[in-house]
Design a protein around this nucleic acid. Structure first.
Lengths: 363, 363
DNA sequence: TTGTAGGCGTTATCAT
DNA sequence: ATGATAACGCCTACAA
């Protein structure tokens, strides 16, 4: 044991340990139990003692040790959320609203990201639970049933966001990705487009991406387009990837007249690639997105897309979780409305493309 | 004690409690101490017993209880970061890199946001410390000295990012906001602009915003512009606010020929407001930003801005913190290079504005 | 209304 | 190399 030597003590060694419940109790002349009650059940203690104790708490800058509290109470008032990525904007707004609503209920948010990898997600779930998360927010339905089994077995309340299925018995607060994309696709086809392509996020383990693709295919079938006539490019979420995918489409002998993208970010990349190739959106090629995040308004031309009520979704999810935590029977399955936002990136089929060839517009 | 009744047990009541160290120890036929060692110091245990124990760990799906661990070990391998906001993109990329580098060092990131409010920041710091954060990442220098005093007293290692001052004795990994904005302003003035305005984030409690404004003023003085001839509009970070500020500028009898914005988001708003007013960027008014986030490339015209090496900054910050945690003397003060990215939003003064009037360009 | 005391799951010190 | 055991700081019956 090295002798204490405050004079040349290395930095960052605690000069003063953080105050404990015991410190507060002693300073206030009460028992630790009373201090604890002042903090956790203020109404179960006299106003005078409470004021006295709280004053000491303030003065000492006391903050309950989280680990100890979790250990003793077996609950943390912490909600864990695992999102696919923090770097990009899709989840930011919804998560912010989620957090704000949690705070209103005295709950704290803990965020982890899975990089769209199911194995990492499972690991993050375990980590968050070990950290004492009282409940979990998950994105989408797709994950191994073993994960759900574990959640059920441990009795961990959870909610799913960003997806919705009418038949599901799982608590979900989201929107119908299939229905939303169906409406958008209808609009595209009603404008006369018949040569369309899809740029989608990877569909594996992602029911949202998959539902959107399925919706387009279904609508295509409605207007008599063969299933394999719709080319699908899958690529991870980023502007660059969207652009690269579009470059691939343009490199083909005959390009589509409309490109439906699985999200706004890919769509923005696609628009850029089209413009870089010297073509015009939507005069030569129409582009649509999904999400209606900020860049959809910023890009030129404005992106026609599906507006998702992200903030509302986050807020409702927080309410559902808060209610479940209090033992209340929360509404399990909440469907939020989306709407198509028409901007300029979707237009009618260019006259020169009325046939399936883009060449030859003369007599 | 209510009788256990699994048949009609309400949902979300744990059917099986999570496995504990003791469960693992029993199943493996060793003591809890050995299990603990297998997890924390694998080399201090026989290979055979280690394999046996780890197999049981895997099979039971054991994850150490975080609270208990924190309580006993007095460390959590968790780093707390308090950023002004999660909703917007400035911090996302740097934080992602920070997180990735932390993970490489076996450290976990805990994020909290302060909404640009010092009081909330102080509260979040307390919360993160109570949650066991071993070290902290803070944004910028500006905060009450009482906060620093508390950090020192408790011996909490911390690092500051997004700002840098050569004389500072505080560990900072950032860039010189003043110098960076100075160079950009020089460029603006060398293009002949003399009627300039500033749209800045609120300067209070924000040394980054303040340094940027000061830099512009200093460069203005260099070219003989009176200090009060540069109009400054302060408004919180958002596209809408940037647009609103620009609308205010345009409503005046004589508008500036160049608008320097404190960040890209405000700049994008300004561009939109200018275009909505029927004017052209940069033909009528030039606009510059700061940060070089994604929208700077997406907006039309492309935004001339200052590129900040966000990822590098996050990574270096994580390295500094990791080293400090290991007791090493980390480089205290790291200055990263910024560079001006020239796109299309900054151009020469329009001919009609060579004098300080924008009217009357012909005899 | 307040105090007493046992226990939460882990780490770390000390024997063995 | 491994095992017993005392903290760690807090909550919560239970007792007063």
């Amino acid at each position: 044991m090295p002798p204490a030597n405050p004079q040349k003590a290395p930095r960052n060694r605690p000069i003063a340990d953080p105050p404990t419940l015991d410190d507060v109790a002693r300073a206030a002349g009460v028992s630790t139990a009373t201090v604890s009650r002042c903090l956790n059940a203020p109404d179960r203690v006299t106003a005078t003692t409470r004021d006295k104790v709280l004053a000491v708490v303030e003065q000492l800058g006391y903050a309950p040790n989280f680990g100890a509290r979790a250990l003793a109470a077996k609950r943390t008032n912490t909600i864990g959320a695992i999102i696919p990525t923090m770097e990009n904007a899709i989840f930011a707004r919804g998560l912010q609203a989620f957090q704000e609503e949690l705070a209103l209920n005295g709950l704290t948010l803990l965020v982890a990201s899975s990089s769209y990898r199911p194995d990492l997600e499972a690991e993050q779930i375990r980590t968050l639970l070990a950290r004492g998360a009282d409940a979990l927010l998950l994105i989408g339905f797709d994950r191994p049933s073993s994960v759900y089994a574990m959640l059920e077995r441990r009795g961990v309340p959870y909610a799913i966001a960003w997806s919705y299925r009418s038949g599901s018995d799982q608590p979900a607060i989201g929107f119908d990705n299939f229905a939303a994309m169906s409406r958008l696709a209808q609009q595209v086809f009603s404008l006369g487009h018949r040569d369309v392509a899809i740029i989608s996020a990877p569909q594996e383990d992602n029911d949202r991406a998959r539902d959107r693709v399925l919706a387009i295919k279904a609508e295509a079938a409605q207007v008599g387009i063969a299933a394999d006539a719709v080319q699908i490019t899958e690529t991870p979420y980023s502007v660059e990837n969207g652009a690269a995918a579009m470059v691939g489409l343009l490199a083909q002998p005959k390009h589509p007249t409309a490109v439906l993208c699985g999200n706004d970010v890919l769509a923005v990349g696609a628009i850029r690639a089209i413009q870089d190739a010297g073509l015009k959106v939507p005069d030569d090629i129409s582009v649509t997105g999904f999400d209606d995040i900020e860049i959809a308004r910023i890009v030129t031309p404005g992106l026609t897309t599906v507006h998702v009520p992200h903030r509302e979704m986050g807020k409702r999810a927080a309410q559902v979780i808060a209610k479940r935590l209090k033992g209340g029977e929360a509404p399990g399955n909440v469907a939020l409305e989306t709407r198509i936002v028409e901007r300029a990136s979707l237009g009618p089929v260019p006259p020169s493309c009325r046939t399936s060839s883009r060449q030859g517009d003369g007599p």
